[in-house]
Simulated scan of single mutants.
Amino acid sequence: MAPGQQEQNQLHENESYSDWMSRLPPDKHNTVLWHLVIPGSHDSMSYDLDINSSIIEPALLKKYSRLRCVRSIMRRWAKTQEANIVEQLNAGARYFDLRIARKENDPDPDRLYFYHGLLTRTDVETALRTIKEWAEEHPREVLILSLSHFKGFGSNSGHLHNHLTNFIKNLFGSKLVPKPMRNEDMPTLQRCWDHKQNVIVSYDHREATSQPVFWFKIRYFYGDGMDTNKVEEILTRDLKVASQAYFYVCGLNLTLPENAGALKYILRWRSLASSIRHSLPKLLRWLQIQAARTPVNIVASDLVTEPNVVATIVSLNKTAVC
């Protein structure tokens, strides 16, 4: 590594990104948020997966839920984040991929969890309260919460969506940024600061998007594989057609095959995290090159608190194509 690069890496490691939005130069304050480059985390709550949970997906493994050894392997390979939600926020992540499910036969009919292969130990309402507390302490940092999937809602879907959306509205209240109805309402940092609003909620279900405070689904582009060359190839293609009129995500995440092909990765690597650490430097170098060619908006990563991930993404606000 060249000495200059080593010094830059050390600077990135030491610099705090807990309030990076408020420290952007003034010319970025009135930029529409989907023209900024924003770091985010993929499967944000997967650090909290419960070894005692049944396997939610993939379907191929659900029948082995009773075997703890299978659940243990599932947790090692579904855990895309190692830092908790506050640590991710403090590290500079501002977009959160929150996949929601209901636990089968839960005695509390309204209790919901997050999931990625397994359910989390922490329920949705507890995690959202934590995020709300952080948002209050950092009023000039705009958070984007992307709620999706809603596994296991079944015939009670309407009630559960109504319960969750009411909870979100009551919890965040006036901090919620409403969907823009006119061009002059487009979200910028300055507009959010002026209105004392700093939480955007994208809710991927028709039950919510008719309400002004819930934004539509945010499109997520990802490579759907473990081969970084193929991941880069797919993302390069997809970013060429990504809309600049709304939020979109470039996912720097690796994905195991949902078939026997997963075994070659499981046998080679101790966990998904070990494979990600090996791949992240290459993916970040690709991102820097790509951002000079095509616009980039939200960049979601596995292990988002790893050194240089947030620093690299935030720095693109100076160099990326708008």
Results as ranks from 00 to 15, higher is better:
S16G: 05
R285V: 03
N229E: 08
F114E: 01
A311T: 12
P58L: 10
T294P: 03
W20Y: 04
N308L: 10
K179P: 12
N14T: 07
Y220N: 11
Y203R: 01
E136Y: 07
L239F: 15
D48Q: 11
T165S: 11
R293Q: 13
M1F: 15
D204T: 03
V299N: 14
M181W: 13
K196Y: 00
R75E: 10
L143K: 02
E133R: 13
A300T: 11
F172R: 02
S315Y: 15
E233A: 12
D204H: 10
K264A: 02
R219G: 06
Q5V: 08
V213M: 13
W215A: 08
E125S: 05
V177Y: 00
Y220A: 08
W77Y: 05
E207A: 12
H149S: 12
A273Y: 01
H161R: 09
F150Y: 11
L33F: 03
I313P: 11
V310P: 06
I298S: 09
Y222A: 09
I234V: 11
P307V: 04
T31E: 06
D227A: 13
S155W: 10
M21E: 03
G4A: 12
S275K: 02
Q8H: 06
N259D: 15
S157D: 15
D48Y: 14
N52Y: 13
P178A: 07
F172Q: 00
D123K: 07
Y17K: 00
I51S: 13
G223F: 09
N259E: 05
R191D: 08
L112G: 02
G158F: 06
R237Q: 13
E15R: 05
Q197I: 00
E306P: 03
L118M: 02
A83I: 02
E207T: 10
R99H: 01
P187K: 03
R219L: 11
H138N: 14
P178N: 09
A292T: 12
A101H: 04
T122Y: 12
L24M: 04
F216E: 13
I38T: 04
Y248K: 12
G40A: 06
E133M: 11
A262M: 14
Q197Y: 00
R99M: 01
P212S: 09
L284T: 03
D238F: 01
S174H: 07
Q10N: 03
R23G: 01
L239D: 12
H29S: 14
N183L: 12
Y220W: 11
A59M: 11
A93E: 03
F96S: 12
S210I: 04
A311V: 12
P295M: 08
R94S: 04
K230T: 14
S174E: 13
F172Y: 10
K103N: 08
S18I: 04
Y113H: 05
F214S: 01
K196G: 00
P25V: 10
R285G: 02
R270W: 06
C69V: 13
R182D: 15
L254V: 00
N170Q: 14
I298D: 05
G152D: 02
P25R: 09
K230A: 13
